[in-house]
Each structure stands twice: as C-alpha cells, then as structure tokens.
Amino acid sequence: MSTLSTHVLDAEAGRPAVGVPVRLEHEGRVLAEDRTDDDGRVRALGADLPVGVYRIVFEVDGPFYPEVVVAFRVTEPGAHYHVPILLSPFAFTTYRGS
C-alpha cells in the first residue's frame, strides 16, 4: 500500500513553515492529522493508502487563504507520494515530489 508525506515551505520568510496543521481526507473521512515539524515536514501523514482520490488540507491561516486543499490520486499501490506546497501570502504552488 502507498505512503504519504508532505512539506510546507514559506516563500515569504524563506524557510520551512513550522506548526502548520495538516489533515488527510478520503471519501469525506479524516484519515490522519498532524502538524509540520521544525523542518516544515510531516514525514508520515498516511500509510497503507489504497488506490483512490485523497485531499490534504493545510490550515495555513494566511491573509487571503485560510486553508490550502490539494486533491491528488493514488494510482500505484506501494508507491510513496510526497505532496509539498510552496506558500506565500497570496499564492501557493504544489507538485508531486519524491
């Protein structure tokens, strides 16, 4: 089964975003919740994820975005998924990391 990690970088401050609440959702249920560590990471947000569509909700509490939601699809059983975000006050970006 697949595993999941994430990373939040604060582009405005030029450093990791520490203490950001993060939750993993699937089919309307919360599967896991955590906060980013001192390096802006959640190293094991989900494990044993079957194929399907998931949502990571980052509670960033920014001046424009109160939260950032990234929906993604697990397609490869056993693969590791890393879904980071790069955050600034009025924008964010994401990609499939490694």
Score class of each variant (00 low, 15 high):
P21R: 06
L9R: 12
G52W: 13
A44R: 15
R96N: 09
G78Y: 12
L24D: 07
D37V: 02
F64A: 09
D48M: 13
G78L: 07
P77F: 02
S2D: 10
R55M: 02
V57I: 10
R55L: 04
G19H: 10
P89E: 05
R96V: 12
P21F: 05
L86C: 06
V83Q: 03
G62E: 13
T6V: 07
L9W: 15
T75I: 11
A32N: 05
E76Y: 08
Y95C: 02
E76P: 02
V18N: 09
E67A: 08
F90Q: 13
L49W: 00
L45H: 05
A71P: 12
R23W: 06
D10N: 14
D10W: 04
V60F: 00
D10V: 01
E33N: 03
R35T: 10
Y54M: 07
L24E: 06
T6W: 00
G97A: 12
A71D: 10
T94A: 08
L9G: 05
P89R: 13
H80G: 08
R15Q: 15
P66A: 14
F64H: 14
D10C: 08
V22T: 02
S88L: 13
P77G: 06
H26V: 08
F92T: 02
S5W: 01
A13K: 15
P77V: 00
G62A: 12
P66E: 15
V51Y: 10
D39V: 06
L86D: 13
V8G: 00
L9C: 09
F72D: 01
R41M: 08
A11G: 04
R35N: 09
E12N: 11
A32G: 11
S5G: 12
L45I: 03
A91T: 11
R35M: 08
G19Y: 11
R55W: 04
P50D: 14
I85F: 03
E59W: 01
L31S: 03
A44Y: 13
S98P: 10
E12S: 14
D39H: 11
E27V: 03
